[in-house]
Nucleic acid binder design. Structure first.
Lengths: 341, 341
DNA sequence: CTGAAAGCGCTTACAG
DNA sequence: CTGAAAGCGCTTACAG
C-alpha cells in the first residue's frame, strides 16, 4: 500500500504541488477560498499526511533533539528524560534517548549517530574524555547543553547542582547533631566524573573547615558491587557515627548492608542521602535527604536548548547555572551522644 | 559553516557521487583499490559524514522506532524504555520515547507524529480507545507490538504479564499464611486499562475460588491522591488483615499511610506488592513481591518488533505471550493468628 | 570498474 | 492567486 504523497493530493485537487504545500503550511494569504476547500477535501479523501523526513531534508531542521544520559538506572537520569521529553513535546520537538552507561566511547558514538540524523541539538551528561569533541561542536555553533557535570575549560552551557554546597550541607547538618566521625561513600569517579569529584572534594573541604579528621578508610568511591565489602571494612571495629551516601544507588547499598547486618538505624549510624529516593519519607527510619531539584534542572536544560535552536543563537544566560540542593530533615540522623562540650 | 556533502567528496576525489555512495555503503566488489583509497582520503580530509535523513527518504526506512509508554513515573515504563533502547542500539536502531501519561488522545497524537517521521515500527502500551486506529495500522502491515495490556479482538502481538496468575499467587500465598480478610488496592482502571482490570478481576476470582468473602470496601481502584483517604476508611474499624498493592506507586502510598498512622507492619496488616521495587529487600519489613520480568518482557517486545521490521513480515510467534510473575517471599506477611482449623 | 540520470517527497524563490 | 522549476543529499538501476 503506497503512501499518499503531496503529488497525489495535487492531482486529486487539480492544483500544483506548490499550492498544496502552501496550504499545508498555512500560507493562506493569497489563496482563494475555493482552492483551499478543494485541497482540504482532497487531503481528507486520501487521508494525506506530510512526510516529515522530506520536509526536514529541505528545511535543514528536524525538530528533533537527542538526550544522552549517564545511566538510565539512575533516578536522576530517568527524571531528566521524562522532563526533557515533556518540554520538547510541548514545543513540537521529538527526542531520541540514548543511554551512555557511563561509557565515553559509547557516548561519542551516540553523538555521531545523532548528528548523522541531523538532530537540531543535544543535551548530555558530559565526560572529560570527549571534551575536545564537544568543543568542536560548540565552535561550529551547534546547540548543546550539559547537565550534571562540569567540564573544565569547556565553553558550554552547564546546568549543575551545587555539589559543593550539597556536601557542605550534609556535613554541617551532621556536625550540628554532634557527629565528628563522618564517612562518605559513592560510586567511582571514573575518568573524571566531576559531579562525583565535586561531592567528594567538597566533603573533604567541609570536614577540614570544621577541623574534623578525615579518615581515608571512611571516604570511598567504589563500584556498587564492592560496597558491601567496603562497608564491612568500614564498620569492622569502630566505624563512623554518620555516613553520607553520595547518590541513590549508593544509598540502596548502604541500607541493604545495614539490614543484612541487623544494624538498626539511626542507632548504629546516621545516614544522609545525597539524592531523593521515593521511599525516603516512609522508610524506617525515614531518610534525611539532600535532594537536587531534578525537575527544574531538566526544565532549564530543555528550555535553554530549545531557545537556542529556535532563535538560532545561544541564549545569553546559557552559561552555567548552579542549582541549590535542598535539605529535608527526617529521622535517619540521631543526636550523637558522645558530643562533649 | 556548510556541512560537507557527498557531492563535495566526489569532487575532492575526482569521481562521481554514485561511486562515493557505493564506497560508503560498502559495495566494494567492483571497485579498484585506487579509487577506494582516493575516496577514503577525501572523506577523511573533509570529515564527511553521510546525512541519514536523505538516505532514509530514498530508502524508505529510517532505522528508527517509537516507544510510547503509559507513564514514565512508573518503574515498569522506565525499564521498558531502557531495555528497548538498548536492544535497538545493538541493532543500529534509534528510539523516540514518548510518554502518553495514560491519555489515549495524547497517545494517538504521538503515534501520528511518529508515523509522519516515518518510524519503522512502534512499541506501545495500548489503550482501548485507540483500538480502531491500531487495527488500521496493522491492516496496512505496519509493525507494531503491544506491551502490558491486552486489547480484546485486536490482532496484534502482545507481550503481557500473566496478571491473573499474579493475583492468584498473591491470594494463594496470603491464604496459606492464614489470611481470609484480604484487600486489594490499585490505580483507576481508566477507560479499560486491561492490566489493571485483569489484576483486579483475577483477585476476585481467586477469592471466590477460595470461598473467601470479597469486601467491596476493601477492593479499590482509585487515584494516588485519594489512596490515603481510602485506606483510612478501610482500616477505620476492622480492616483486612492483608493487603495487595497492585503496583509500585500504589505500594508507596500504602507504606506511607502505614508510616503516618504508626501502624507497624506486618503486625498491623500484611502486604504483598505486585511489582518489584528497589527497596523491597531492605525495607523493614522487607517486602514480599510478585514481580513481573520487566527486562525480559521488554526484550521480547523489542526483538519481535525488530525482527518484523528487518524481515518484512510479522514473526509467527508474535501473537501473544504471557510472562509468569515471580513470587519472592520476604517479611511483609505474617502468619495470621486467627487461623481456625 | 565507474558515471549520468532519475527519483525519494517535500519547499521555495520566482514568474506570470 | 497559482504553477514550473530547481534543489535538499542521498541511492539505484542502467549504460558503457
Amino acid at each position: 500500500m503506497k503512501k499518499t504523497t503531496m503529488a497525489d493530493v495535487a492531482r486529486e485537487a487539480g492544483v500544483s504541488k506548490s499550492t498544496v504545500s502552501q496550504y499545508v503550511n498555512g500560507r493562506y494569504d493569497y489563496m482563494s477560498e475555493q482552492t483551499k476547500q478543494t485541497i482540504e477535501r482532497a487531503i481528507e479523501a486520501l487521508s494525506y499526511r506530510p512526510n516529515t523526513l522530506a520536509r526536514s531534508l529541505k528545511q535543514k531542521q528536524t525538530s528533533t533533539i537527542g538526550v544522552i544520559v549517564a545511566n538510565l538506572l539512575n533516578q536522576f537520569s530517568s527524571e531528566v528524560v521524562r522532563v526533557v521529553e515533556s518540554v520538547c513535546h510541548d514545543e513540537g520537538f521529538h527526542v531520541f534517548v540514548c543511554n551512555a552507561e557511563d561509557d565515553p566511547a559509547k557516548e561519542k558514538q551516540y553523538i555521531e549517530m545523532l548528528l548523522d540524523r541531523q538532530v537540531d541539538g543535544l543535551v548530555l551528561f558530559p565526560t572529560e574524555a570527549n571534551k575536545a569533541y564537544y568543543a568542536s561542536l560548540l565552535k561550529q555553533g551547534y546547540p548543546l547543553v550539559c547537565l550534571d557535570r562540569l567540564v573544565d575549560g569547556l565553553d558550554a552551557p552547564f546546568v549543575l547542582l551545587d555539589h559543593a554546597q550539597a556536601s557542605m550541607l550534609a556535613v554541617d547538618y551532621l556536625v550540628s547533631k554532634g557527629h565528628r566521625d563522618i564517612g562518605f561513600i559513592g560510586m567511582p569517579v571514573g575518568e573524571v566524573i566531576t559531579a562525583r569529584i565535586e561531592r567528594r572534594e567538597a566533603f573533604e573541604a567541609a570536614m577540614r573547615h570544621r577541623d574534623l579528621r578525615i579518615n581515608e578508610h571512611w571516604l570511598q568511591n567504589v563500584p556498587l558491587d564492592n560496597m558491601h565489602d567496603v562497608l564491612e571494612d568500614m564498620f569492622y571495629d569502630d566505624g563512623p557515627t554518620a555516613l553520607i551516601a553520595a547518590n541513590d544507588q549508593t544509598l540502596n547499598e548502604v541500607l541493604m548492608y545495614a539490614k543484612k547486618k541487623k544494624m538498626k538505624l539511626p542507632e548504629a549510624f546516621s545516614v544522609v542521602s545525597m539524592d531523593h529516593v521515593s521511599y525516603a519519607p516512609f522508610f524506617t527510619p525515614s531518610i534525611t535527604t539532600i535532594a537536587q531539584p531534578a525537575t527544574e534542572m531538566a526544565e532549564c536544560a530543555a528550555h535553554w536548548l530549545l531557545q537556542w535552536i529556535t532563535s538560532g543563537e545561544r541564549p545569553s544566560e546559557a552559561v552555567m547555572r548552579r542549582f541549590a540542593p535542598k535539605l529535608t530533615i527526617r529521622e535517619s540522623c540521631k543526636e550523637n551522644g558522645e558530643l562533649g562540650e
